[in-house]
């Protein structure tokens, strides 16, 4: 039996189903899935069209962390906590903006939960509104490109660092372009007692304006340009980083996406390009990406 799908309603070429299925498979289906509102909930829990082969709960946008904490506590009280891992699947909107309060509370109380955030860098379910995970310069419906503004201003929030600051035993970033690496990280996270945070980069075909066949290539380029470093923290210490042999310029990642196409003709586009390259360089220096 499949733990997730087939027959869900995600767009052709969508990135996150690869991550969701990979995570559940690597934990051998011993998963209680907690889901916050987002694309994943919409495509997988239509009435009579349930995609999940594991126990699943969706409550609200903001409380996935609290719901997971409750389930984990109940399992512990019933002495059944060895039966399944409580895993949260939440989008970047639910993790970075709306649900950060309950997520922070969950991490503070150190509940034994694996929190997986699939990061598609905006509220893609409602049609591409900016979230705090949206990178600078991206064109979204709430940060439209016009004469005065070249898309989003301000940086992308570093949620992995925020998780590390809570003192969680394990925090990592991953990408759907490297599913084996992601699965290894989920498996590693399951070995720790306490709150674990994994953030997985998953392209959105409609919001980013890419063709379905570019999904894997785009997420690979995000890693290879240094804009999405794959890092791994254990007890606050950086233990593993994906090294890059030849770091590519950020333009290669940006030019194939519709949400960034204005950067190459807008008069303020050059500034944003420089800012993005600076972010990539900072990442490279901070994590030692260059091999």
């Amino acid at each position: 039996m499949n733990y997730f799908g087939p027959g869900h309603g995600a767009c052709p070429g969508c990135g996150f189903p690869i991550a969701i299925r990979g995570a559940i498979e690597v934990l051998d289906g011993k998963v209680i899935a907690v889901n916050s509102t987002g694309c994943l909930e919409i495509v997988s829990s239509m009435y009579g069209r349930n995609t999940w082969g594991v126990p699943y709960i969706h409550s609200l946008f903001e409380n996935a962390g609290a719901v997971a904490a409750g389930i984990e506590t109940a399992l512990r009280a019933m002495k059944r906590d060895n039966e399944a891992h409580v895993v949260v699947f939440a989008g970047d909107g639910a993790t970075f903006d709306i649900g950060i309060g309950t997520l922070s509370g969950m991490m503070d109380r150190d509940h034994n939960v694996i929190y997986i955030c699939y990061d598609n860098e905006a509220y893609q379910n409602t049609g591409n509104q900016q979230s705090m995970a949206t990178p600078p310069g991206a064109n979204t419906t709430t940060t439209p490109v016009g004469k005065l503004k070249p898309g989003k201003t301000g940086r992308k929030k570093d949620m992995v660092e925020i998780a590390v600051a809570h003192g969680v035993p394990y925090a990592a970033s991953a990408s759907i372009a490297y599913p084996k690496d992601f699965q290894r990280k989920v498996k590693r996270a399951a070995e720790f007692e306490g709150s674990k945070y994994i953030q997985v980069h998953a392209p959105c075909v409609t919001g980013w304006g890419i063709d379905g066949k570019l999904t894997v290539e785009v997420s690979k380029l995000a890693v290879e340009t240094g804009l999405y470093p794959l890092v791994e923290y254990e007890y606050g210490k950086l233990v593993k980083v994906k090294k890059l042999k030849q770091r590519k310029p950020v333009e290669e990642y940006l030019k194939i996406q519709r949400r960034f196409r204005h950067l190459f003709k807008h008069e303020m586009g050059k500034e944003i390009l420089e800012q993005l390259q600076k972010i990539a360089d900072e990442n490279a220096e901070k994590y030692g990406l260059d091999a």
């Binding site: 039996m1 499949n2 997730f4 869900h8 239509m46 009579g48 069209r49 349930n50 126990p55 699943y56």
Partner: peptide, 9 residues
């Protein structure tokens, strides 16, 4: 909840 068998097939 969604404790039914997967039906999306």
């Amino acid at each position: 909840g969604a404790s039914s068998p997967a039906m999306s097939s």
